[in-house]
Design a protein around this nucleic acid. Structure first.
Length: 313
DNA sequence: CCCTGTTTATTGCCGG
DNA sequence: CCGGCAATAAACAGGG
């Protein structure tokens, strides 16, 4: 229907709901959490469609952040300048788009609401996790070489927590190749770092995706330009502070506690499985996808399991 | 004041 | 057809 062969494609609304867009943004950043403004930026950078009517969609997006339990708010450190909090994904929101549609989730993610208030501490676990996450990255960075090399930092962040990739990881959303059960994490990694398949049959192609300069090449969704580095470096800013903590520990969600236990691990295997892994390995230089991360995921992995969420109706 | 969040209401669409 | 999800509008509180 639309007219192919024209950049006009960019005018079209991307086949993603605000929820998925936001999830992409969050998962796409190394810290797994972003302030509102960065989420906006992320979306606008990649989807030209959203460069207009900002007032409208941003309001909607904000509404989504507050309304959906799958997003948690993480307060900023008091000493950290800036407005607003950070937004992260609830650790147990799982694969909300299992059905393959990024427009409509199978079920709305709702944090379990136990009649009696639960220990508020439960909620904070999420933050803890994030914190941990960031911490790990930090140390990793420190180890490699303080001044984070833009790219590697990304890789680290992604491949670090022993493949505990959120189903939401952009790699999974954009390049929904699928995830390997346990075996050849190899090709998976490869395909991931190789950039998402811009032209696979997921939806014929991603006309909506505006590949600025080189997004595709190596940095899938994360920072590809200086633009993004604004936040690709929170670590840095944090470091200079002297302490190791990322943004802040406790997330605050109006929602009561949640007790969850890794609700069913997503083992979805999208239909696109048949796709070639590296659809079109563009120019994937560096990467190397090394799994050299020495980090001990011990806690990292376990913590999230403390959460309990439920897809409630 | 503008940005960030929260909340309520309305409407359209999709899937069961 | 009905219920649930998503998009949009809009009012409103709080903060820098």
């Amino acid at each position: 229907m639309p007219r192919p062969g024209r950049n006009t494609y960019s005018d079209q609304k991307p086949p993603y709901s605000y929820i998925s867009l936001t999830a992409m943004a969050i998962q796409g950043c190394p810290e797994k959490m972003l302030p509102l403004s960065e989420i906006y930026k992320f979306i606008m950078d990649r989807f030209p469609y959203y460069r207009e009517n900002t007032q409208r969609w941003q309001n909607s997006l904000r509404h989504n952040l507050s309304f959906n339990d799958c997003f948690i708010k993480i307060p900023r450190r008091p000493d950290q300048p800036g407005k607003g909090s950070f937004w992260a994904l609830h650790p147990s929101c799982g694969d909300m788009f299992e059905n393959g549609s990024f427009l409509r989730r199978r079920k709305r993610f709702k944090v379990m609401m136990t009649s009696d208030h639960l220990a508020p501490s439960k909620t904070s676990e999420a933050a803890h996790y994030l914190q941990q996450h960031a911490k790990l990255r930090l140390s990793a960075l420190a180890a490699t070489g303080t001044h984070l090399p833009q790219m590697s930092s990304y890789n680290l962040g992604v491949s670090q927590p022993s493949t505990f990739k959120h189903p939401f990881a952009i790699e999974n959303i954009i390049a929904r190749e699928y995830k390997v059960p346990g075996g050849l994490a190899f090709s998976t990694m490869q395909s991931m770092s190789a950039g998402y398949p811009l032209h696979n049959q997921l939806t014929t192609s991603w006309p909506h995706m505006y590949s600025t300069s080189v997004i595709d090449s190596a940095a899938p969704i994360s920072m590809a330009s200086s633009d993004y580095s604004a936040y690709g470096v929170p670590i840095k800013s944090l470091c200079h502070g002297g302490q190791t903590l990322p943004a802040i520990p406790v997330p605050i969600k109006p929602t009561p506690a949640s007790v969850l236990g890794l609700s069913a691990l997503p083992h979805h295997i999208p239909a696109f499985l048949s796709n070639s892994p590296q659809s079109m390995s563009p120019t994937s230089p560096q990467t190397a996808t090394s799994q050299s991360s020495p980090a001990t995921p011990s806690e990292t992995l376990t913590s999230p399991s403390t959460f309990q969420s439920v897809a409630v109706h």
